[in-house]
Every structure is written in C-alpha cells, then in structure tokens.
C-alpha cells in the first residue's frame, strides 16, 4: 500500500520546517506527499452586505493566489527533488480540514509545524497542533 503523508503547509517558517521534515521522511520511505494548504474560514463569521455580494469573486481570487504563490512553487520543488507530491487547497478550520484531508487520502501520518503559540490566544481558542494531537485519526508529527 502506498504510504501517504499529509503535510500542513503555509508560507511561514513553521510550514517550511514541516515541509522539510516531511520531504525527508518521504525520501526515506518512498511515501507520497500531500501538501495541504488551508485558508482559515468559518461559515459563522459575519460579513457586510457588500462582502456577501463580492464573496465568490474574492474566493476565486484567494484560491488562485494561494495556488500560484504557495502550493505550486512547493510542488515544483518537490517534483524536482524526485518526490511524488500533490496539493490540496481548501477553506475551513485548519485542524478539522487537515483531518478531513488525511481521512480522504488515506494518509498514514499528518505533519505540521509548531507555531509556538502559547499564552492566552492558544488557551482560549486552542492551537492547531493541540487540536490535531487530540483529534487526529492517524499519528501526527509536530515539528518544532
């Protein structure tokens, strides 16, 4: 069975660390990488009427930008390095969406970077790493 790793990636240094770690792991095990980029989105946020009317247009623009500026360059590099990789670009709650992707692609592991959020924000809202550690259906590696 082909081994699939889901790596949560954004253009932060934490995302880069996660990607490097996952790429190394893939090289060793011959696993396929799924580079997941999640655009934070809640269906329960509040928008003005104007934002409602422009939402679809904005969404398309955001998706195109993320695809071109974030996902594609990374996939290019990974392919060049001889790794098998594909991208997943989604909207949603970051941890929940990573879990959903992992389940869909039958991943054996989720890799994310630690953003180092502690303090009050993480306590109140929870962190992606914390949620994943508690809720992920597969082993989860949090790269410091």
């Amino acid at each position: 069975m082909p081994n699939v790793l889901v790596v949560g990636y954004d253009d932060s240094s934490a995302g880069q660390r996660a990607l490097d770690f996952a790429a190394e792991r893939a090289r060793q095990t011959g696993a396929t990488l799924v580079v997941a980029h999640v655009l934070e989105w809640s269906p329960y946020s509040f928008l003005t009427v104007e934002e409602l009317a422009e939402r679809h247009k904005r969404r398309e623009a955001e998706l195109t930008r993320a695809q071109q500026a974030i996902v594609e360059p990374v996939l290019g590099k990974l392919h060049k390095a001889g790794l098998e990789a594909r991208g997943e670009l989604r909207y949603g709650h970051i941890a929940d969406t990573l879990i959903a992707i992992a389940v869909e692609v039958g991943a054996s592991e989720i890799v994310i970077g630690r953003t180092g959020e502690s303090g009050i924000t993480a306590r109140v809202f929870g962190s992606v790493a914390g949620t994943l550690a508690q809720a992920a259906p597969v082993p989860c590696t949090i790269v410091p």
Binding site: P43, Y44, L52, H56, R59
Partner: peptide, 10 residues
C-alpha cells in the same frame, strides 16, 4: 463549497 457565503452568513 467552504469559503462561499454560508446560509448562516446570509
């Protein structure tokens, strides 16, 4: 369809 206007938002 996440990222589009939800029923709740409308």
């Amino acid at each position: 369809d996440a990222g589009e206007v939800s029923h709740f938002q409308a």
